[in-house]
Every structure is written in C-alpha cells, then in structure tokens.
C-alpha cells in the first residue's frame, strides 16, 4: 500500500510490529558489539557494547515470552530489563530512556509519528534529568536530542512517518559524528580532557544505531506493503 505524502498522523505500526521493531533494533545493537567495544575502549572503560548486549538480550527474552498488549508495556519492559540487568551508567540511562518514554502516558495499542515523538521526547527529558547531561557534553544526548527534534519538525511539517524516521536517523548520525569534536563532561572520558577529541561517544553511537534500525525496519514494512494506514 502506498503512503501518501502529508499525512503524518495516519501511518502507524501495530502492536506486533512495534514488538518486532524492538527485537530488530536490539539485534542491530547486539550485532554492533565489536564496534561499540572498540569505541568505548578508546576513551571509556570498554564495557558499553557488552552492557547493551545484556540489556537488549534480556529485553528480547521478555518481549518474546510475554504477551504484551500495549505499546507502553513494550517500552516499559524493555527499559526495566535494562535497568535490572545491565549495571553501569548505561543500564540506568538507556533503561530510563524507555521507562520515561511511557511515564504518565495514555495507554496505546498502535504507534504513529505523533505518539513516537511524544514518547521519545519524554524519554529524552528523563535521561537528561537523571544523567544531568546536556547537548554538547559528549554523551548519548548528542545523538538523541537532534533525532527527537527531527521527529517534531517532521510532524509540524506534516511529513510522513518514513521521511520523519529517515531524518531522525540522519540527525542521530550527525550528532554521533559530532561527538568526535567534543570534550567529555561525564564518565571515564572526562578525565581525558582534550585527548578525547577525535573519538566518538559510545552511547551516542548506540542511539544512532537504534534510529537507523527504526528507519530501516519501518521502511522495509513500507516496501513489503505491511505498513498500516488509516
């Protein structure tokens, strides 16, 4: 089914598609473990890829073994799995991204661009509140915040879901690339000062991989004619 331009609110993912999307996104992050490990070893403590693998594996287990019937619970259970199993700073921060996304949100059974933007906006705010990082501190925020902004902008401009996700993915990647130019304000990289310049942040890299996976997955749904449209 072709999606017409201009109806950002009308394209949506079903609950099963959201679940598949989360599994796919997790798989893409897990496949990137060697990359994440080498990035994190350069300026961090080298455990970011290992931690993310633990978190997404556990989340996949829960998603596959439980009949989650709301989009909210998919976000929540993914976040809780990360917080409970990963350890380190990443466990709390990536877990908070998903848990805070659905905090005080109405229960939904399908996901469109407006809801996605609203969820991840809350997730972003949750991560900032907990981690105290702002844009420019060489953290996951540097990829996440531009991506969330891109979603909102696409929404305002009444773009369709695919274009919005494509732009968000591009902005996340730009943000990730830009962390190479930054001095770290948090974590082990902080003590490197100027020596961290030239190295990208591992958390921002994971965010970029996640957004690229979301775009790829939804684009594939569209190509297969499986994207829902009302």
């Amino acid at each position: 089914m072709m999606v017409s331009n201009g109806d950002s609110l009308k394209t949506y993912l079903t609950i099963d598609q959201v679940k598949e999307l989360f599994l796919y996104m997790g798989q893409k992050v897990i496949e990137s473990k060697p990359l994440l490990t080498s990035i994190d070893s350069a300026i961090g403590d080298g455990d970011h890829g290992i931690g993310m693998e633990v978190g997404f594996k556990k989340a996949a287990e829960i998603l596959q073994n439980n009949n989650l019937t709301t989009v909210n619970s998919i976000f929540l259970e993914t976040g809780k799995a990360m917080i409970s199993n990963m350890g380190g700073a990443s466990g709390i921060l990536f877990g908070t991204l998903f848990v805070a996304s659905v905090k005080d949100k109405p229960i939904i059974h399908k996901l469109n661009l407006e809801l996605l933007a609203s969820f991840i906006q809350s997730g972003l705010e949750g991560v900032k509140a907990r981690g105290k990082a702002e844009l420019g501190d060489k953290t996951m925020i540097d990829a996440l915040e531009p991506a969330v902004k891109a979603l909102h902008q696409a929404l305002e401009e009444n773009e369709d879901l695919i274009n919005a996700l494509k732009k968000a993915s591009e902005k996340a990647q730009d943000g990730m690339e830009n962390t190479k130019n930054l001095i770290a304000k948090f974590g082990r990289a902080k003590s490197l000062g100027e020596r961290a310049i030239g190295h990208q942040d591992a958390g921002a890299t994971t965010i970029s991989i996640m957004f690229e996976a979301i775009y790829t997955f939804v684009n594939e749904l569209q190509n297969k004619g499986e994207l829902q449209y009302e």
Binding site: D45, D47, G51, I83, S84, N85, M86, G87, G88, A89, G91, I92
Partner: peptide
C-alpha cells in the same frame, strides 16, 4: 561486573 556499577536491583 568487573569495573561496572551494581544494578539497582
């Protein structure tokens, strides 16, 4: 884990 904070749990 090695050099990694314990979980809240």
């Amino acid at each position: 884990n090695v050099f990694s904070a314990p979980t809240p749990d």
